Computed example of a mutant assay.
Amino acid sequence: MSDENAIDNPLNLDIPDHLQYSEEHVWVDDSVSPAIVGITAYAEQQLGELVFIDLPDEGTRVEAGDEVLELESAKAVEPLVCPVAGTIRYVNHDAADDPSVVNNDPYGEGWLLKIELDDDEPELLDAESYAKIAQ
Rank of each mutant, 00 (worst) to 15 (best):
D94S: 15
L55H: 14
N92A: 14
D29V: 06
A131D: 04
D105K: 03
D66R: 02
L69Y: 06
G59C: 11
D8K: 13
P122S: 10
Q45R: 02
G59P: 05
P99R: 11
R61D: 02
P99Q: 08
Q135T: 00
D118C: 11
V62Q: 02
D98F: 09
K114W: 07
A96H: 01
E58C: 09
L11C: 06
G86W: 06
N5F: 13
Q135C: 01
L19N: 08
L117Y: 13
Y42C: 07
D66H: 01
K132N: 14
G48C: 05
Y107A: 05
S31Q: 12
E78Q: 12
D66W: 04
K114A: 15
P83G: 10
A41C: 03
A6F: 05
Q45N: 08
V32T: 15
G59N: 05
P106K: 11
E70C: 00
I15L: 08
T60D: 07
N9C: 05
G110P: 12
L113Y: 10
E78L: 11
L11K: 12
V77I: 15
D8P: 13
P10N: 02
G48P: 01
S73A: 08
V51C: 11
F52V: 06
D54E: 14
W27M: 03
L80H: 08
I7L: 05
E72Y: 07
V26A: 05
L124N: 05
L47V: 07
E44W: 03
R89M: 09
E23A: 07
E4H: 12
Y107T: 08
G38C: 04
L125Q: 02
N92M: 14
G59Q: 10
G110R: 05
D97G: 03
I53W: 06
A131R: 01
L69T: 11
D8C: 04
N104P: 05
G108M: 06
N103I: 10
P99M: 12
L125D: 02
V62T: 01
E72N: 09
D8W: 04
I88S: 13
L113A: 12
R61V: 08
H25R: 00
A74Q: 07
S33N: 13
D3Q: 14
